[in-house]
Design a binder for these strands. Structure first.
Lengths: 250, 250
DNA sequence: CGGTGGTTTGACCACGTTCAAGAGAAGTGG
DNA sequence: CCACTTCTCTTGAACGTGGTCAAACCACCG
């Protein structure tokens, strides 16, 4: 019915818990005291492999868990009544996603792996119980939700007040930041999504994104081949993204 | 510097706590057991009057509290580097706002009263302590944040995939729903914001909003005089807002 | 009253979409 | 390994929605 979304991939359990997980760095418990982290350890029991396009959860499905990206990348999408997709979020290693379902107990969007990814599942009921005992965890959850809300607000501002070029440049710089936060190169990286998805996320037609990227390349600001992107002139990009110095136009 | 935003209105304390508050219905504690509600009572100590345009909190100010609208209406706005405003949210009686600051400890947007309003302030540190003891309150907070995130996502979808007319109609229907939830008329109400603000919220120019409303009026779907709005043909509006039945066009 | 903030209407134009066609990349099976 | 399909990306041309600018109107308030 629904496209070929119902894969049955062998879900390899990578490790039974956090303390023995080789990917523990950059995970949710970061920032928690060691003792509390060990308590939390029991929660994230099911790191699993998802292949490209495989769904992690589906829109309208009952909400039981949230998830953490250990490796790879994940997008969340909302599908409206006409079947159009709208990309709402991009999640990279260390990011938490899936809390959209807390509101009314069912997920309001779907989550899909963009490439082969390792994903940890955290049972929300367990998480809630631990939150009550761990003030730092409680605070952390609220902060993460607040961060996501602020990210959404940023997107809203971009969508309504910015040109295609500004949006694209801001997207590039946002990715750059996020890779840098992960101790990866902020000047040369691979776009996690297809350009179709990226355009959708930015509220643009693919053609527009393609043209804008071409223009940026012609001006010598970036180098782009396929999904491989290199930032050549970060200062110029920042000037485009945040046009507050109008005085040196000409 | 900043417009005439630094009012010093006499802040009339309406009642010292929730149990003695005449407006307690429709407040945050709703859904909590009586006993827990009484515990929470101590938190919301400062219901205060705000006049039209008065700021409740300012962008970049340190985050200490969140707020509940008891009466009136509030908008949240983000002001970018160029000084442009962007309306992010509209809050009606019973709504909680101000949690945008949890993320990094300072508010990411400002909140302004749209008309004379009663606002309760809740100290966040106190709220957090009570959350730890009251699982239902903990859940409630996460739900409220999730609801706001979902609202933002809805706006994102509207902004990128809908025509001006669809957005306007959806806005009208959303208001209708919210008034109905508050046991008020869902077919005849007053727009809480100016049309300038409403257009901004919808990512449109004021002129466009004005034209679209005029068109809807000419087609006999609504009646509008100033900010007073009456829905005449709800079914037709719903058909516009959610164009999934393309087959009976003509 | 004049003044200010909000709203309406018209004319014009630009940005980004849509449609169309083709090239390139990637995945699948013989 | 190549031929095949399918998905992704690029480029061009034409169109249209909604923005911008300008002017006038209106309501409310001091």
């Amino acid at each position: 019915m629904d496209g070929a979304q119902t894969y049955q991939v062998s879900v390899n359990t990578v490790s039974e818990n956090c303390t023995s997980c080789s990917l523990a760095a950059g995970c949710l418990p970061k920032g928690l005291p060691w003792q509390q982290w060990r308590q939390l350890d029991a929660l994230a029991r099911h790191p699993a492999v998802f292949v490209r396009r495989q769904r992690i959860y589906s829109q309208n499905a009952p909400f039981y868990s949230c998830y953490i990206v250990k490796s790879g990348a994940v997008k969340t999408v909302y599908i409206n009544a006409q079947g159009q997709e709208r990309v709402l979020g991009l999640y990279l290693p260390g990011d938490l996603f899936g809390l959209d379902g807390v509101g009314d107990g069912s997920h309001t969007c779907s989550a899909q792996a963009l490439e082969r990814s390792l994903i940890c599942r955290i049972n929300f009921a367990d998480l809630e119980q631990h939150m009550a005992r761990m003030p730092k965890l409680q605070r952390l959850l609220l902060q993460l939700m607040s961060d996501q809300l602020n990210a959404a607000h940023g997107l809203i501002c971009s969508l309504s007040q910015s040109t295609a070029e500004e949006r694209v440049v801001r997207f590039i710089l946002e990715l750059s930041d996020r890779y840098r936060q992960r101790k990866l190169s902020g000047t040369e990286f691979r776009l996690a999504m297809t350009k179709t998805d990226a355009a959708n996320y930015l509220g643009l037609a693919v053609e527009t994104l393609s043209r804008v990227l071409g223009r940026l390349r012609n001006r010598g600001l970036i180098r782009i081949q396929g999904r491989q992107l290199q930032i050549l002139n970060e200062a110029a990009l920042k000037a485009i993204a945040d046009p507050s110095h109008i005085f040196l136009d000409s």
